[in-house]
Design a protein around this nucleic acid. Sequence first.
RNA 1: CGGGGUAUAGCGUAGUCCGGUUAGCGCGCCUGCUUUGGGAGCAGGAGGUCGUAGGUUCGAAUCCUACUACCCCGACCA
Length: 490
Amino acid sequence: MAKNFSTREENYSQWYNELVVKADLAENSAVRGCMVIKPYGYAIWERMQAALDKMFKDSGHENAYFPLFIPKSFFNKEASHVKGFAKECAVVTHYRLKTSDDGKDIVVDEDAKLEEELIIRPTSETIIWDTYRKWIQSYRDLPILINQWANVVRWEMRTRLFLRTAEFLWQEGHTAHETSQEAVKETLTILDIYAKFAEEWMGVPVLKGLKSQSEKFAGAIDTYCIEALMQDGKALQAGTSHFLGQNFAKAFDVKFLSKENKLEYVWATSWGVSTRLMGALVMAHSDDKGLVLPPKLAPIQVAIIPIYKKEDQLEQISEKVKKIKILLEAKGISVKYDDRDTYKPGWKFSEYEFKGVPVRLALGPRDLENNTIEIARRDTLEKQIIPIEGIEDVIEKLLAEIQKNLYTKALSFRKNNTFSVDSWDDFKIQIEKGGFVMAHWDGTPETELKIKEETKATIRTIPLNNPQEQGNCIFTGKPSKERVVFAKAY
RNA sequence: CGGGGUAUAGCGUAGUCCGGUUAGCGCGCCUGCUUUGGGAGCAGGAGGUCGUAGGUUCGAAUCCUACUACCCCGACCA
């Protein structure tokens, strides 16, 4: 584990803020709890978006867009939903400013008070279901499989860069189905997409499972999630997929005539992942030298740095690099040739390490003579000199290997930090140390709450296909038939 | 909202307890020369409403009062 990933949170937090700023990922904005995502960071997000978007479309979904503002009354309609979000809503009350009476200031024009306040969406279930009502009459109108890429606002008490910002970017899917079974199947289809994305693109292994009833989404019947373990031993919920039952259909009166000519409520799902995934990416792989990006998401996959003394040397090098660049780009590899003469090679080496660029090439006079090139990989920091001939195949293989290696490394980290615990004392000790703690639980929200109060640990997930095993609740000693995953979480 | 802390140049900070020259230092920035295979060296230079407002004083970054912002811990949470 990188030394700055100590379990002491204050160190971690300092390192994290330092890193994301240096790596040009994001910085805090002047606006409370919001963030500016700089171009390099946004390029990572764009790659995530592209991969997810394709997966959604390949499974039959379409994109659409719904309003940012939600009339306050919409929130009243689903009781547990409003309870879950009421405390973190930004509210628009006026629509006009005016110059103050003394002419010195701009103030809110009290005459421009809205009849009904508008909520800036913290999530779009309400406005979308209000719309779906108008779209759905018959079973022929179903299913509706829609995704939206949007920003949402949740006025959190305390924010944290990427993990819990007041405004964040995300995708939210909202689907409508004829039957319960079909909706549950959709929920699980999306869960699989999320898990696949996390593991195959981000290189972050995740547990797929169910949230406990007290941790589920406000308004859901069941919340499924993917749960990842960060290098500091804390858990991060990386994505959620909700089976909403008929809750929103009933709240917004969305009915359809079935094949049997019966009027029925629609079955629903919703699901989302956010820019929090960028936080997961940073925290899962980075080391003391900075970011380590999986090749599939890295905006720059290969950085090439010339080493030269004189102008004519640079020209020779540039010529050679151009050829290499064409070969690599023909394979769909993104290449950055950094021939700035304003920074020295050592500077550039550090910079691309900070930025997590998977592969770095350096080409100098010695290489020109020998027809070789220096190749360095970010994940292991290994360097070697290899012949230029056939470099494109070597790099293609190396990128695939780095992608795989990051996942393998993260997976073995998770294995080494997952513990089965059978006594309350061991439980408390292990939770304090960090990691996933597998323990028996009597299944009641009361016990869950008490455990949370005493240890700050929450049930992260009840894994799908969880092996059944007789045991006794870690806290109450009551019988239990399976272990669940406890951890301290972000 | 409760508890604790901080505010001095783009960033990081010294000075504040115990008031007293022109507010000091590092990084970064600009200019010039030498450098370039792991964050260069030397020389010169620019950059400050000391968070805001008021008060005490011959004199305030320093003492007093109020306010504001930010950070950490809790409640909340993708």
